[in-house]
Protein backbone atom coordinates (compact mmCIF):
# COMPACT_ATOMS: atom_id res chain seq x y z
CA UNK A 1 0.00 0.00 0.00
CA UNK A 2 2.84 2.41 1.00
CA UNK A 3 4.85 1.49 -2.10
CA UNK A 4 1.97 2.15 -4.42
CA UNK A 5 1.28 5.43 -2.75
CA UNK A 6 4.93 6.46 -3.13
CA UNK A 7 4.79 5.66 -6.78
CA UNK A 8 1.72 7.72 -7.19
CA UNK A 9 3.43 10.69 -5.59
CA UNK A 10 6.37 10.34 -7.93
CA UNK A 11 4.20 10.13 -10.99
CA UNK A 12 2.34 13.20 -9.89
CA UNK A 13 5.60 15.06 -9.25
CA UNK A 14 7.06 14.27 -12.62
CA UNK A 15 3.92 15.41 -14.31
CA UNK A 16 3.53 18.57 -12.36
CA UNK A 17 7.18 19.55 -12.03
CA UNK A 18 8.29 18.46 -15.48
CA UNK A 19 11.12 16.23 -14.23
CA UNK A 20 12.64 13.52 -16.45
CA UNK A 21 10.82 10.29 -15.93
CA UNK A 22 13.82 8.00 -16.02
CA UNK A 23 15.31 9.73 -13.00
CA UNK A 24 12.16 9.90 -10.96
CA UNK A 25 10.64 6.59 -11.75
CA UNK A 26 13.69 4.32 -12.22
CA UNK A 27 12.78 3.50 -15.76
CA UNK A 28 15.37 2.35 -18.26
CA UNK A 29 16.63 4.99 -20.67
CA UNK A 30 17.36 3.48 -24.02
CA UNK A 31 19.37 5.23 -26.70
CA UNK A 32 19.66 3.62 -30.11
CA UNK A 33 21.87 4.64 -32.94
CA UNK A 34 20.20 3.15 -35.99
CA UNK A 35 20.36 -0.59 -35.75
CA UNK A 36 23.97 -0.58 -34.79
CA UNK A 37 24.19 0.52 -31.17
CA UNK A 38 21.87 0.31 -28.25
CA UNK A 39 22.71 2.00 -25.00
CA UNK A 40 20.63 1.08 -22.00
CA UNK A 41 20.85 2.91 -18.68
CA UNK A 42 19.20 1.91 -15.44
CA UNK A 43 19.20 -1.82 -15.98
CA UNK A 44 19.43 -4.22 -13.07
CA UNK A 45 21.77 -6.86 -14.43
CA UNK A 46 22.36 -9.25 -17.28
CA UNK A 47 20.10 -12.26 -17.44
CA UNK A 48 21.12 -13.91 -20.66
CA UNK A 49 23.60 -13.10 -23.34
CA UNK A 50 24.16 -14.76 -26.67
CA UNK A 51 24.94 -13.83 -30.25
CA UNK A 52 21.37 -13.05 -31.14
CA UNK A 53 19.67 -12.23 -27.88
CA UNK A 54 20.32 -10.17 -24.79
CA UNK A 55 18.02 -10.30 -21.81
CA UNK A 56 18.28 -7.60 -19.19
CA UNK A 57 16.63 -7.18 -15.84
CA UNK A 58 14.84 -3.87 -15.38
CA UNK A 59 12.75 -2.43 -12.58
CA UNK A 60 9.46 -3.90 -13.69
CA UNK A 61 10.16 -7.04 -15.67
CA UNK A 62 12.72 -7.67 -18.39
CA UNK A 63 14.02 -6.14 -21.55
CA UNK A 64 14.75 -8.42 -24.48
CA UNK A 65 16.89 -7.26 -27.35
CA UNK A 66 16.96 -9.44 -30.44
CA UNK A 67 19.27 -9.18 -33.40
CA UNK A 68 22.54 -10.53 -34.80
CA UNK A 69 26.23 -10.58 -33.90
CA UNK A 70 25.94 -8.96 -30.51
CA UNK A 71 29.00 -7.73 -28.69
CA UNK A 72 28.82 -6.02 -25.32
CA UNK A 73 31.06 -3.02 -25.79
CA UNK A 74 30.90 -1.93 -22.17
CA UNK A 75 29.07 -3.14 -19.15
CA UNK A 76 28.79 -1.23 -15.91
CA UNK A 77 26.46 -1.90 -12.96
CA UNK A 78 23.66 0.22 -14.42
CA UNK A 79 24.70 0.79 -18.02
CA UNK A 80 25.29 -1.40 -21.00
CA UNK A 81 26.38 -0.60 -24.53
CA UNK A 82 25.50 -3.24 -27.04
CA UNK A 83 26.75 -3.42 -30.59
CA UNK A 84 25.47 -5.58 -33.41
CA UNK A 85 22.47 -5.59 -35.67
CA UNK A 86 19.40 -4.92 -33.61
CA UNK A 87 16.07 -6.18 -34.90
CA UNK A 88 13.72 -5.93 -31.93
CA UNK A 89 13.51 -4.45 -28.50
CA UNK A 90 10.83 -6.13 -26.45
CA UNK A 91 9.49 -5.34 -22.95
CA UNK A 92 8.41 -8.34 -21.01
CA UNK A 93 6.17 -7.43 -18.10
CA UNK A 94 5.61 -9.90 -15.33
Amino acid sequence: MAKKWGQYVRKWMTQKMDLPQDVMMDLPRITMIGQVHIYIENHRGLLAFSDGEVRLMIKHGQLLVKGKAFVIKTILPEEILLEGKIDQVIYIND
Binding site: G45, L46, A48, S50, V71, I72, I75, P77
Partner: peptide, 24 residues
Protein backbone atom coordinates in the same frame (compact mmCIF):
# COMPACT_ATOMS: atom_id res chain seq x y z
CA UNK B 1 26.19 -19.06 -15.21
CA UNK B 2 28.25 -16.76 -17.34
CA UNK B 3 25.76 -13.94 -17.01
CA UNK B 4 25.77 -14.14 -13.24
CA UNK B 5 29.52 -14.00 -13.27
CA UNK B 6 29.50 -10.91 -15.46
CA UNK B 7 26.95 -9.21 -13.19
CA UNK B 8 29.13 -10.02 -10.22
CA UNK B 9 32.14 -8.44 -11.92
CA UNK B 10 30.34 -5.23 -12.81
CA UNK B 11 29.06 -4.95 -9.26
CA UNK B 12 32.62 -5.29 -7.99
CA UNK B 13 33.62 -2.41 -10.20
CA UNK B 14 35.59 -4.32 -12.77
CA UNK B 15 35.26 -2.66 -16.11
CA UNK B 16 34.94 -5.18 -18.92
CA UNK B 17 34.45 -4.59 -22.58
CA UNK B 18 34.07 -6.28 -25.92
CA UNK B 19 32.10 -9.18 -24.50
CA UNK B 20 31.53 -11.73 -27.24
CA UNK B 21 29.73 -15.03 -27.08
CA UNK B 22 31.31 -18.10 -28.62
CA UNK B 23 28.85 -20.96 -28.84
CA UNK B 24 26.56 -21.54 -25.90
Amino acid sequence: GIERFLNQLTKNGVSIWNVRKHGS
